[in-house]
């Protein structure tokens, strides 16, 4: 089975600070990690490979330092890592990002399944996985909590899946190739191994530019991004309320006056 896992390198949210002047993330000194939901995608990919053999390729789009995330994925057992990195990708929104990833995956050849985490913890959009499925014209199943069965008939594979919906869960069948996004209920991600870490250290990361994946320059970066972030701001923090003390009657009278004052 030819498996692709899409991951994103994100700042560790336990360590987030916002610059009060321009409301942007302070990235200096912040540890980067693989988006936690993507860890479940990696684990599920590895489990599928362990059952059906094949290859797990982990793909990310990002700056050169995103290579570290790919190496970590390799240390967990992924076979190879592909980094899509190019200045032309900078400023991509979810549409442009899913396009770039889809073009990278296309270049990898025939794929049986693409697995993503349900969303990234920095943007929380949950749009890139579904976006990839549209660009590649593959069926998708989001919020998958279990791959129940892998059926095979006439050389065609089908997954029987359980996916989470707001009021319970759905069981559905989806033909391969397909795109899945997974939730944390699906498995328990493994720890890296020493041999995996050694292999990851030496592994050659495949690096592709926009040109390498034949990306249309109108569809990537800022040009390809209909979403524009107009303003980012921290909501004003609530200031502590006022506590009135004294005789209940006096307090009520005072409170009425205060409320009137607020309304007017």
């Amino acid at each position: 089975m030819n498996i692709v896992i899409c991951i994103k390198q994100v700042p560790d949210t336990t360590d987030i600070r916002i610059n009060p002047d321009d409301n942007t993330l302070i990235r200096a000194g912040v540890v980067s990690i693989i988006n936690p939901f993507d860890m479940y995608a990696i684990e599920e990919g590895l489990r599928l490979r362990d059952r059906f053999e094949g290859k797990v390729t982990v793909v990310t789009m990002g700056p050169p330092q995103a290579e570290a995330a790919l190496r970590e994925a390799i240390s967990l057992g992924c076979d190879q890592g592909v980094l899509l990195s190019d200045r032309a990708f900078a400023g991509s929104d979810t549409l442009a990002t899913s396009y770039a990833l889809a073009m990278g995956i296309k270049k990898l050849g025939d794929i049986d399944v693409i697995i993503c985490g349900k969303q990234a913890i920095d943007g929380d959009t949950a749009q890139v996985g579904p976006g990839i499925s549209v660009w590649l014209d593959m069926p998708q199943a989001t919020y998958v909590k279990k791959i129940e069965e892998v059926k095979e008939a006439k050389g065609k594979k089908t997954f029987r899946l359980e996916r989470m919906v707001e009021e319970g869960h759905e069981i559905l069948e989806i033909p391969l190739p397909c795109v899945l996004t997974v939730v944390k209920e699906i498995n328990e991600p493994r720890m890296p191994s020493l041999k995996g870490m050694m292999r990851a250290k030496k592994a050659e990361i495949i690096k592709w530019t926009a040109e390498d994946v034949k990306a249309d320059e109108k569809k990537i970066g800022l040009n390809g991004s209909p979403t524009q972030v107009v303003k980012i701001f921290s909501p004003p923090s609530r200031v502590g309320g006022q506590v009135l003390h004294g005789d209940p009657e006096d307090v009520v009278t005072k409170l009425r006056e205060l409320l009137k004052g607020e309304i007017n």
Binding site: M191, P192, L194, M197, M198, K201
Partner: peptide, 19 residues
């Protein structure tokens, strides 16, 4: 060495997160 840090950090990760 780099390998020793790797060994230590991996053991630490398992100890802290799992154990």
């Amino acid at each position: 060495s780099e390998e020793q840090i790797m060994v230590r950090d991996l053991a630490r990760k398992i100890a802290q997160e799992k154990l």
